[in-house]
């Protein structure tokens, strides 16, 4: 088992050495997608603002949550990032079939290419998120630094999550459709627009057992309530560690075999 982890780490280390490859490809991907458009990648900012803005305007009045705009802006920003990464990664190796069958790049190159792409996209959404916070009157405090730490933690966990979903998706292509449905439902089951009112029951159970809750809390709480959500940080760190262990294991065990199942 440790042998597999070592091989997985080798693959990743090789990809890190060849960072100019995935960085260049990620930039091309973004540029290609918005070629010949007026706004270019600023569409990413518009997408986010339209989505978050609509929610705040429509549901903001009767919400039981104070500072609804800040709550939604941060929660939605984190959720959109996580769901995009997961959605994109379950079919990653299927999409990269031509490259995988024609080149000898380590699989982690494709993983880091998607990571870089997702981070660039998230950068635009983050600008929108900060804009909403400022407009809503939530001014920066030192506690925001904890949110940055939480974001860094999520970024660190991203390649691991991608590897897990990408390897499973290569062997089990149904995964991409399962994930599409799960993410659609997850938008409602994750506390983005609602909070746990502490009343117990189904809503509290969903809040407690949904792992996405903790990713949102870790980033949101320092900005929203100025507190350090220690519990959420612990859960996110634990999930990240588990994701990395299983990612390296899966990668090491399958990196030479995936080319045959695509």
């Amino acid at each position: 088992m440790m042998g597999y982890v070592g091989k997985g780490a080798e693959d990743l280390a090789e990809a890190l050495r060849r960072r100019n490859v995935w960085y260049a490809l990620a930039m091309e991907d973004i540029a290609d997608q918005y070629k010949r458009t007026l706004l270019g990648p600023f569409w990413l900012l518009v997408n986010y603002l339209a989505f978050a803005g609509t929610f705040v305007v429509i549901f903001g009045h009767n919400a039981a949550i104070h500072d609804f705009a800040a709550y939604v802006a941060v929660g939605l920003f984190v959720w959109l990032y996580l769901s995009e990464v997961i959605l994109q990664s379950s079919a990653l190796f299927l999409r990269e079939e031509n490259f995988i069958k024609g080149l000898t790049l380590p699989l982690s190159v494709y993983v880091l290419r998607l990571t870089a792409q997702s981070l660039i996209r998230a950068g635009f959404a983050m600008a929108g998120c900060v804009a909403i916070l400022l407009i809503a009157g939530t001014l920066p405090t030192l506690a925001w630094l904890w949110s940055l730490v939480a974001i860094a933690l999520i970024v660190v966990a991203t390649p691991a999550a991608i590897i897990n979903f990408a390897v499973c998706g290569a062997y089990f292509p149904d995964l991409q459709f399962i994930v599409t449905n799960a993410m659609r439902i997850g938008l409602f089951l994750t506390p983005i627009f609602w909070a746990d009112n502490g009343g117990g029951g189904l809503r509290s159970a969903v809040y407690l057992w949904n792992p996405f809750t903790y990713f949102l809390e870790a980033v949101r709480d320092p900005i929203y309530s100025g507190t350090l959500p220690f519990h959420a940080f612990a859960v996110v760190s634990l999930i990240a560690a588990m994701l990395w262990l299983s990612a390296l294991l899966l990668l090491g065990a399958t990196r030479r075999k995936i080319v045959f199942v695509l």
């Binding site: 260049a24 091309e28 290609d32 070629k35 790049l105």
Partner: peptide
């Protein structure tokens, strides 16, 4: 979408 020049560069990169 990329120019020939950029493609030469990209092709070189993916080939190590």
């Amino acid at each position: 979408e990329a120019t020939g020049r950029r493609n030469i560069f990209l092709r070189g990169l993916v080939n190590g």
